[in-house]
Nucleic acid binder design. Structure first.
Lengths: 200, 200, 200, 200
DNA sequence: TATGAATGAGAGTTCATTCAT
DNA sequence: TATGAATGAACTCTCATTCAT
């Protein structure tokens, strides 16, 4: 209960200020608990941060796994992945920020978590994804012949939708509103680009 | 000269630790100057950070402007933009990190700088890009009919190449080396996707 | 039983870290009881410390009293005291440490306890020792004519055997093993010195 | 200057409260400096403590070396050592407390310092003392035939004069005043005992 | 008796910034 | 320009103690 409240408050704080900028006092205040409790449960600021990160990674991972089945077709993958990513992040803006910043770090704790998560899985999602991509490439379902670049294209277009927005706004001198229509449109644009650009 | 050394040291430091994590002492040490001199020249850590950011933004902007001419064709744009971005960032890894983190902030100082830069340029370049995009859409050179999404697709694929790498590696369980061949391949993959996916 | 376990754990902890350095959590952990129980039984860290100290003082005192009889001769006293002290401390290393540190404090709680203990014993033992020493001096059994210095010499040689060891080792550049032979030799050395140096 | 003031204040504080009980704030207050200065000069409480200890050890060592010459006779050694120790400690009561407590610790930093000090010395005092003691034993100048016990006897009687006092007072039910006469008497008692008990 | 959660007052340490020279 | 010393506010973390059950 307290633990849950702390995690939530921490997520907010880390999202807003990053790890170094986050203040333990502020987290405690937001969570309406005594500061010492935070250390009672999480033992250090860093450990709290890792807990937040882990929780976020797990949630994201479970979303992705929900569509990855052995029979998955390339077309479906290119259609669903952007949708899942974009919908998920649009509902969890704090997580985008935390993960986004984390990706800038040399010793990336997020990568570690993902790797760990995937290894613990019996369904071996990563291997499954890998196998699927291999099949699509060999089948000739897809034009891009490099695993890594194929995946990067998908992830980039999906995740960066939340990071590049401000640049695009600045360049175009406009301001876009993030409502449902906006995300629907964005999802369509991305999946169209992916399908048209990569399906044979 | 001292000023230049400080800026360079600061760029390194901010890239590695972010604004809050960066230490003024460490910057002074790296720059081999007395800490007080740093304040003599830049008056505050925040101001130093803004100087670094501004410099970075200017460099990036000048790269982009170099290809934007009134006669520019969509095909060329989709071919050259990824190349410029990816080459530039591959040679300025510190700037990717600084800008990347900055994009996560609510009150984005980078956006401010870009807008400012563009306005100081007598509004030429942005309006030019805007006009070009409009023309391509109306010409039917391009299938994507939304300015914003069109630009987002380009930026995402280019910039995120440096952020998403670790995720892709983790998912595929591989480790890619960032040599010239890697970036050549990445540039080709991105521009092919963009051309195939967006040109009519 | 829990109380006994706590006392034992506390003795260990106080011996290793001193009063201020000792941690209530660690004591509870060592004693395998809940921390709150410790306060239930002893009400405060200080009180627990005093209990440990008192127990230690009592044990030590009972050893000493065992040889002090009205007919005691100086020679026997000088022979037996070092033996009792040294044997006792060699078997109760924690107590040496606790008492040793306590002796450094301005408001020495140990002194208080001894005084109290002696007074509770109907003033028998202290007066007896005092009377015995007086007699030995007047008899001419002993050359040292000052009560205080006589007693100090005995105590110093006995107790400090456990404190000075490391200095002597450092000065001589050697490392001595604390086995039975070591203590036998030490006892002999001390009592020989005392007898040869103080008996007439 | 500030550094000197801090060391002095620290010496007082550590003497009164021990390492764990000492408070950095109190030291800063006593030294009339900003708390941060303490860390500016000494970087941590522990390091400050070690500095205090080192200074104390050096002072003490220089006293001892002042009498140790190659021609030194056993009689002179037994006469002078107690005098030097006791006079020195009587004038540096804080150091007695600090060293006394330190000797109770398992990983004794003081021993380390002494060893280091002796090794850095070209005159090789330790070896000199060792050689002297060997000679006295072989000469037959001294009855005690064990180096270690010989040294222990001297150190015990000298150093413990400041630690055992309260026990002796408690046992005898008296209170002695620590004036010049007291120390003169103590020195005489100790050196008499040593000479009578150990010289042939 | 026993426990896990909670608390408040501090502990040592850090850090951007300023001052005196 | 340049420096070493100084500052104050804040920061993370700890610890004896108490509470609710």
């Amino acid at each position: 209960m307290s633990k849950e409240k702390i995690l939530e408050a921490a997520r907010e704080e880390f999202a807003e200020y990053g790890f170094s900028g986050a203040r333990v006092d502020r987290i405690a205040e937001k969570a309406k608990i005594n500061k010492a409790m935070l250390f009672y449960y999480f033992s250090s600021k860093e450990n709290l941060y890792k807990s937040v990160l882990k929780e976020a990674a797990e949630k994201l991972m479970s979303q992705i796994k929900s569509i990855v089945t052995p029979e998955l077709k390339a077309r479906t993958f290119l259609e669903k992945m952007p949708e899942i990513y974009i919908r998920y992040f649009s509902r969890n803006r704090e997580i985008v920020k935390i993960l986004g910043r984390e990706l800038m770090n040399e010793d990336n704790y997020y990568k570690l978590i993902i790797t760990e998560l995937l290894e613990n899985e019996e369904r071996k999602t990563p291997h499954l994804i890998k196998k699927l991509i291999d099949r699509w490439i060999n089948n000739g379902e897809i034009v891009e012949t490099d695993q890594f670049n194929l995946l990067m294209n998908i992830i980039s277009l999906s995740v960066f939708s939340f990071m590049g927005k401000q640049i695009a706004e600045a360049v175009l001198g406009i301001k876009v509103k993030e409502d449902k229509a906006f995300f629907d449109k964005r999802i369509k644009s991305v999946s169209n680009l992916l399908k048209r650009g990569m399906l044979k």
